[in-house]
Amino acid sequence: MKTLKQHLLLFISLIIVWISLAGVHAQELIAGGIVALIITLIFGSKAHIFADINLHPKAIFFFILYIFVFLWELFKANLDVASRVLSPSLPISPGIVKVKTRLKSKMGRTILANSITLTPGTLTVDTCGEYYYIHWIDVRSANIEDATNKIVHTFEKYLEVIFG
């Protein structure tokens, strides 16, 4: 069941990339489908990351929600950095803080680290199991719980449902 899911998801994502690039023409669709099938049969059993994705309806709903939350945070991040860059006094008090995540799966942790990097004033520098070391452009709290609340929880509650 688990391997079937990762084969299926790999095949679907390959097909989606191919259709986006080539458009919908019968001949190209067949050729791309055959190539995608061959790639899936060769590499499917190694694509463990796809097995982390939950496929029940709630997870899909949270995934769509997550995209919008993420885009909004990305936009806020840019306005934040822009205002810091443009103000003459350069209001920063940077530092590296440590936060803890509840996520267990590799895929979930990867997406979380990437999301943290792209959102207001934070940049993942290093990871160590369930701990992330995060460079924060404006350190507001140095202890683990407070920093976790401020940085991680926005995304974690969605990613927990999507990836577990």
Partner: peptide, 27 residues
């Protein structure tokens, strides 16, 4: 984000100094 994460990690491993306005360095 992956590439900037890799660059930041490499910089920290090479012990490139943080600015003197830095508040804390847990790592």
């Amino acid at each position: 984000p992956l590439s900037s994460h890799a660059l930041a990690r490499a910089a920290h491993h090479m012990k490139i100094a943080l600015t003197n306005r830095t508040v804390i360095d847990r790592l």
